[in-house]
Nucleic acid binder design. Structure first.
Lengths: 241, 241
DNA sequence: CGCTGATGGATTGATGAACAATCTTGCCGG
DNA sequence: CCGGCAAGATTGTTCATCAATCCATCAGCG
């Protein structure tokens, strides 16, 4: 709890250098959870896939209890849905879920735009970097990096609020959205408009054009929401069949 | 996953009435977690108290594994801090934690004020009810209900955004704040200003005075933040000693 | 005196096996 | 077509056990 770096009299001096050594070791269940998370957000495990404990434990080479814990972790993150005595499955996003997530994103990212007026200009650089990454990914026709750069832009936008809890919250939201994003198989025919939209967002932000920036963001989010909603529709269709 | 109420051909018709029967049964570990949560937010277990697994398991009459799971649940909620191989303790809020939580609250509640302009007027009634509860609690000189009513007001304010995920998020934040709130031992000498502040917030909101309402909320949150920060200071002092 | 390194006790991390409770499925009779 | 019933499978929970790690203590040594 005590922040490192402040050498109170009587304490052993803790240099900021040593903070790098403050490794966050991960338990086995967390490692299993990470592996599973990667397979889910990577699209290897599609929404609706059942995740029996024994199977999972066997394939990952851990005990059933450890596998259980991993499932609980992902359940709390929203990537896995868990039903009492019925087991766990890769979560399915309903259209309402997508709508809710985007309502939250709207709230957080609008606040991020508001914060952009008060932060140091250098703080906006990561946003520019994300756009650059997006552009180069589009040129190389790489789907994964393209989406990742898009996500990174919005992550950095929320990051302007400088709140660890908001960052974690947004990260979990984004994790849920990967359930849809993982189902995208190819780039849109014309990725340029997407890049332009982000570029305009960035320029309106640096230009202090709060109102127009908000309007632009609102529209951008609405488009994105419709996109993912159509994916969510397919998801639930395939799920009930 | 499928929303109740839509009777697709071939499905058993599910009337909204039956949704009440869709009970969310709770596992043993969740019950243990609830019991522990109550003791923590109730102040029975002060921040910093160690929570050994065997002791917990014994006192609750469950196995160690179940107790472990309960601790993990509370850890994810932020009420318990967990260190690898070092065990779990009732979480301690640093001043930075309080600052972060209030930054999030600022973001969410400001958005709530914004939403108040678009929701149905009846949607604001719960806010009024919370103020009334606050007033009657102050009259009866009851500490617990007073704080609870205060919390309820802000919960309802965020509730205006109509987002399940934001509601849950706010609930967890509030859970963390209870770590401080539970340490309050008596009402302030003059609870009237607190009630007046909320009343003014409410009236500015119903009056459509967005700007003044925001200013009022900002000030109100700032006061509250300072209050809790001073408690957090005591917490960390008692913790390091 | 202050620091390094080793020892032992205590607690957690993880495993494997077991049993009860519950869900699902398929079958039967009405 | 519907409801009841038994079998099989999966989960919920407990127990016992071992390895890994942390903590406090203490001896050794410059």
């Amino acid at each position: 709890m005590a922040a490192a770096g402040n050498a109170l009299p009587g304490e052993t001096p803790t240099d900021p250098v040593f903070d790098l050594l403050a490794i966050e070791r991960s338990s086995t269940s967390e490692q299993v959870a990470s592996a599973l998370r990667a397979k889910i957000t990577g699209g290897e495990l599609v929404p609706g896939t059942p995740l029996p404990e024994v199977t999972l434990a066997g394939s990952m080479g851990v005990s059933r209890n450890t596998a259980r814990e991993a499932l609980r972790i992902l359940t709390r993150e929203g990537l896995v849905s868990h039903n009492m005595h019925r087991g766990a499955t890769v979560a399915t996003l309903s259209e309402q879920d997508v709508a809710d997530i985007f309502r939250v994103r709207w709230t957080l990212e609008m606040a991020g735009v508001g914060a952009s007026a008060y932060v140091d200009a250098a703080r906006l650089q990561p946003l520019r970097d994300a756009i650059a990454a997006m552009a180069s990914a589009a040129l190389a026709d790489e789907l994964g990096p393209m989406i990742e750069a898009d996500v990174e832009f919005h992550r950095q936008l929320v990051g302007l609020l400088e709140s660890p809890r908001l960052n974690r919250f947004f990260e979990e939201l984004q994790g849920e959205l990967w359930l849809c994003l993982a189902l995208i198989t190819r780039l849109p025919e014309k990725p340029d408009p997407l890049i332009d939209e982000h570029t305009e967002l960035y320029e309106l932000m640096t230009g202090g054009e709060q109102v127009r920036c908000r309007r632009q963001l609102e529209q951008h989010l609405a488009e994105s929401e419709e996109n993912l909603k159509s994916i969510a529709r397919n998801m639930s269709n395939a799920d009930q069949e």
